[in-house]
Design a protein around this nucleic acid. Structure first.
Lengths: 162, 162
DNA sequence: TATTGTTATACTCTATAACTATA
DNA sequence: TATAGTTATAGAGTATAACAATA
């Protein structure tokens, strides 16, 4: 345990990992959003496509859980992407659930989007050395390694940082 | 330069710092938002209060720039916080600009909010050792160290990640 | 002319609640 | 009863475009 300074606001703030993540993401997110705007897409849509690509045949509920949004919010997202021909809803394991797949056009689109993000990312991380970037990625991956012990986070009034 | 794998989507994704930041913030942000909900506030409001606390007498435009939102969006935010008695608009350096200050109640409220965030943060970073947390904070601070070379990001269609 | 704050309006995203059909 | 998807509605947050006052 590190001796934490008095909680008078200012002094303890720089120690809050979540808050610093918030601040950094405010910048990188803005840059990424601007970069993706030329493709008429958003980070959320790209995130969804990546998840579907990594989990072919997944259902909408699990996608929503991944994106931290409810089932109904998934609908609009998927409807848009389906109209664009980027994702397909096929028959799922049940007669009630859908199985999600990226179309060929979706795969191609995702590739381009990631290339755009890669350029944006290079600028955003320009202040870090190659080693530091690797280090940061390692820590971020490790931070994601927890399965969250309990409760139903999704659809219980949860929204992402803003 | 590290040899980057083919851009086929899946394989290069884990290398994108911005994307991993996005994913991590999706989780920590949700936790923080849930924790702050009991105080009827949001990460954005806390961020604003922290900025005002750190920059007493700042104007609304600079606050908006910090939060990555336009002037009009700052209005609603400040109006709410002013009604709650957490922030004050006093006479600024100009007759047109306002000088923002945290009230005493605002200071107290911010202290409580940060205490709540600190608890939430401890859970979110439980998978990291103390040393790793310090390391991560260092990297995040360094990532913020760039002043952004050009252009007017704010009020040009910018929104934070979602 | 440019800037600061302001207001009104529209759009995007999401939650909530209800409904259908499966299980 | 519980779950997956769906739909309609409402709310939060933000952008856009205007305007007034000041620089």
């Amino acid at each position: 345990m590190i001796a934490t300074p008095a909680i008078d606001g200012r002094s303890m703030l720089p120690r809050l990992v979540g808050f610093q993540l918030h601040l950094v993401t405010l910048r990188t997110g803005q840059a990424a959003r601007a970069a993706l705007a030329e493709m008429a897409t958003t980070p959320a849509k790209v995130t969804a496509m990546v998840y579907v690509a990594d989990h072919p045949g997944c259902d909408q509920t699990s996608l929503g859980r991944y994106l931290n949004i409810g089932r109904s919010a998934v609908m609009k997202l998927l409807n848009t992407m389906e109209v664009r021909g980027h994702v397909e809803r096929r028959e799922g394991r049940d007669l009630r659930s859908n199985a999600l797949y990226l179309t060929e056009a979706g795969e191609e689109f995702l590739g381009k989007a990631l290339a755009v993000l890669e350029r944006s990312d290079r600028e955003a991380t320009a202040t870090l050395t190659e080693a530091e970037q690797t280090q940061l990625l390692h820590l971020l991956h490790k931070l994601q390694a927890e399965p969250a012990p309990s409760s139903d986070a999704a659809e219980s009034g949860a929204r992402a940082y803003s």
